[in-house]
C-alpha cells in the first residue's frame, strides 16, 4: 500500500516536475530564449516585437490545437495545413462573388468535410491517423487545384475583416486576440471539464478500457476530427488575414511547427497526457525560436533538421522521464 516510498532519482524528480508543471518549465524556457535574443540583438525586445510575436504565434497555436486534441487520443492531423490553406483560399476567392459573410461560411464547409472524412477513416475503418490525414491532405490539395482553375477569372480579395483580425492592433495588442482568447478558453475548458474532453484523454490513455466502460470510440473520433478540421479552417482564415496573399501552399509551412508546438508543449504523442496550455507556450517558443534562427541566418534545411530532432528528442525525453517512478 505504499505510495512513493522510494526516494526518487534526480531524473525521476525532474520528470515529476516536468509532468506536474509542464507549463512552468516551458515558460522558463520561453523567457530564456527571449533573454538570449535580447543579448544577441540588444533592444529588439520591445512592445512592438512582443505584439508581432503574439500575432504570428496565434495562427500557429490554433493549428497546433488540432494536433493537441488529436494527439490526446494518440492520433495526429497532418491534413490541418491543407485544410487551413483551403479555407483561406476559398474565402479570398468567394468574397468578391458572394460577399464576406457567406464566404466565411462557405470556406469552413470543406474544412469540416475533410475532417469528417478523417474521422470516418480513423474511427470506423481504423486506419492509422497519420496515414489517413496524409491521404486526405493530398485529396484536399488536388481539389483545391481544380477549384483554383474554376475561379481563376474572379481574382481574390482578402476580406477586410480578416485583415483587421490578422494584422490589426488595438492599443498595441493584436486584434487576433479577440478570436484567440475565447477560443483558447473554450479548448482549455473543454479538455478538462466536458465529457468530450475527458473521453479524448480516456481513448488516448487506454482505448480498450474506454471501450469496456461503454465509450463508443468511433463517435468520439468522428467528432474529434471534424472539430479538428473546423479549427484548422479557422486558423486558415486568421492566417490569410495575416499574410494577406492567398496561395495554394499558404499554411503548409505551419504544419510541422504545429506538430512541434504540441510536442514541445508536453502533449504526449502516445495520447492520454498533456493539454492545450502547454501548446500555447510551445507555439510562442517556436515563434521566438524562428526569429532567433532567422537572426542567426540558419538555412531552411537546418531548420527542418532541427524540427525533426526536437520532435525526436522531446518525445524520447518525455517517454524516459515519465517512465521513471
Amino acid at each position: 500500500m505504499s505510495v512513493e516510498t522510494a526516494r526518487p532519482s534526480v531524473l525521476g524528480r525532474a520528470g515529476r516536475f516536468l509532468r506536474d508543471h509542464p507549463t512552468v518549465t516551458l515558460i522558463l524556457l520561453l523567457l530564456a530564449l527571449v533573454a538570449l535574443l535580447q543579448v544577441l540583438r540588444p533592444g529588439i525586445v520591445n512592445e512592438r516585437w512582443i505584439g508581432n510575436t503574439v500575432k504570428f504565434a496565434i495562427p500557429l497555436a490554433m493549428l497546433a490545437a488540432c494536433q493537441t486534441l488529436t494527439m490526446l487520443t494518440g492520433g495526429i492531423d497532418l491534413s490541418a495545413g491543407t485544410v487551413a490553406t483551403i479555407s483561406a483560399f476559398v474565402v479570398a476567392t468567394q468574397a468578391p462573388l458572394v460577399g464576406t459573410g457567406p464566404a466565411l461560411l462557405i470556406a469552413l464547409f470543406p474544412a469540416i468535410i475533410l475532417g469528417l472524412l478523417n474521422g470516418f477513416g480513423v474511427g470506423i475503418c481504423r486506419v492509422h491517423p497519420l496515414i489517413m490525414t496524409l491521404g486526405t491532405g493530398l485529396i484536399g490539395i488536388g481539389c483545391l487545384q481544380v477549384y483554383q482553375r474554376s475561379v481563376i477569372a474572379t481574382g481574390s480579395v482578402v476580406p477586410p475583416i480578416l485583415e483587421w483580425l490578422g494584422t490589426g492592433r488595438t492599443g498595441g495588442l493584436p486584434n487576433a486576440l479577440v478570436l484567440f482568447l475565447p477560443f483558447a478558453a473554450l479548448i482549455l475548458w473543454a479538455q478538462g471539464r466536458s465529457g468530450f474532453g475527458r473521453l479524448l484523454y480516456a481513448l488516448g490513455a487506454n482505448e480498450d478500457a474506454a471501450r469496456l466502460s461503454g465509450v463508443r470510440a468511433w463517435q468520439v473520433y468522428l467528432a474529434l476530427y471534424a472539430l479538428s478540421g473546423l479549427i484548422a479552417g479557422l486558423a486558415g482564415l486568421v492566417y490569410v488575414g495575416l499574410i494577406k496573399a492567398p496561395s495554394l501552399s499558404l499554411a503548409e509551412p505551419l504544419l510541422l511547427p504545429s506538430v512541434a508546438a504540441a510536442v514541445i508543449g508536453g502533449t504526449s504523442i502516445f495520447g492520454g497526457r498533456g493539454g492545450y496550455a502547454g501548446t500555447i507556450v510551445g507555439a510562442l517558443i517556436l515563434t521566438v525560436l524562428g526569429t532567433l534562427l532567422t537572426l542567426l541566418q540558419m538555412p531552411e534545411g537546418a531548420r527542418r533538421i532541427l524540427f525533426g530532432l526536437i520532435i525526436l528528442f522531446v518525445t524520447t525525453a518525455y517517454l524516459r522521464l515519465t517512465d521513471q517512478g
Partner: peptide, 26 residues
C-alpha cells in the same frame, strides 16, 4: 485492461458516466 493508468482516480471513476453521447457536454 480496465484503467486509464496515466489519468486520475476521479477521471477513472467517472469514465462510464461520461461515455454516452448525451453526456459529452459540460
Amino acid at each position: 485492461d480496465a484503467l486509464l493508468m496515466v489519468r486520475s482516480v476521479r477521471e477513472n471513476i467517472a469514465l462510464p458516466i461520461l461515455a454516452p453521447l448525451r453526456r459529452w457536454g459540460a
